[in-house]
Structure formats: C-alpha cells, structure tokens
C-alpha cells in the first residue's frame, strides 16, 4: 500500500518535470503544453499539473482571454552564467555530477548515427 502511494507521488513529480521541460520552449497555454507532451495526457491532468506548478512558484501565469499562459518562473530556470559560476566554485564537476552523457570519441559518431537509424526503423 505504502509502496503504491510512493509510486503515485513519483509519477506526479515526473509529470511536473515533463511539464516544466515543455515550458522550456516558451510561454504556453495548457492546450499547447498538452500538444507539446504528445497529446497522451488528459487535458485536465495538464491543467492541474500547471496549477500545482503555479502554486509552488515554479511557473508564473498570465491571463490570456478565457485561459492562462504559463511560463517558467525564476525558481525553475537559471541563467547559464549563474550556473557555471556556481559549479566552477570548488566543484570537481566530473566527480560529483552524474551526467547523462560522456564525451564522445571521434569514432563513436558514425556508430551512434547508425544505431539511431536502426532504432528509429523499429
């Protein structure tokens, strides 16, 4: 039971992050966010997630006719300069950060292109 609830909460966090990631493209109405997420989610789910992000201060909104336009708040986005300065101050970047990607070697690029074509062909 408690495990199940844990999963539900995690899914909610994942959903919020996906909505934030969609808003990275710019200010959007809930309908546009839904289109950005691949239209798999119910409109109301997108609406409530956006409302929750607004409550948390992760997104700001402006009234646009009968709906709202949402965009990333200062708390959810940061300037590249600020981030670099923070990371360069006393941080062994490679040691601490779990990066999604390693650096690619020159030989990796053609291999990766081929694998990508192969995967998309499935």
């Amino acid at each position: 039971m408690s495990k199940k609830r844990g999963t539900a909460r995690r899914d909610r966090g994942a959903l919020e992050n996906e909505v934030l990631a969609a808003l990275a493209s710019g200010p959007m109405t809930p309908r546009e966010v839904r289109r950005h997420l691949g239209e798999e989610l119910a409109y109301t789910t997108v609406m409530t997630t956006l409302a929750r992000l607004h409550e948390k201060g992760a997104a700001t909104r402006e009234s646009a006719g009968r709906t709202f336009t949402y965009q990333l708040a200062d708390g959810a986005s940061v300037q590249a300069r600020t981030m670099r300065r923070a990371l360069d101050a006393g941080l062994d970047r490679e040691q601490v950060l779990a990066r999604f990607l390693d650096e690619l070697g020159p030989d990796d690029v053609p291999v990766l292109r081929r694998l990508l074509r192969q995967a998309k062909g499935r």
């Binding site: 966090g13 992050n17 990631a21 992760a58 708390g75 986005s77 940061v78 590249a80 923070a86």
Partner: peptide
Amino acid sequence: SLGGEPGQLVVVDDDA
C-alpha cells in the same frame, strides 16, 4: 540557493 523542491527540474538558459 536554487529554491524549489527536491527532484525538481531546473532549466538552464544555455545553448550548450
């Protein structure tokens, strides 16, 4: 200093 919740996505305004 970033604020927000643990586990939350932070978008860096970066071209890299």
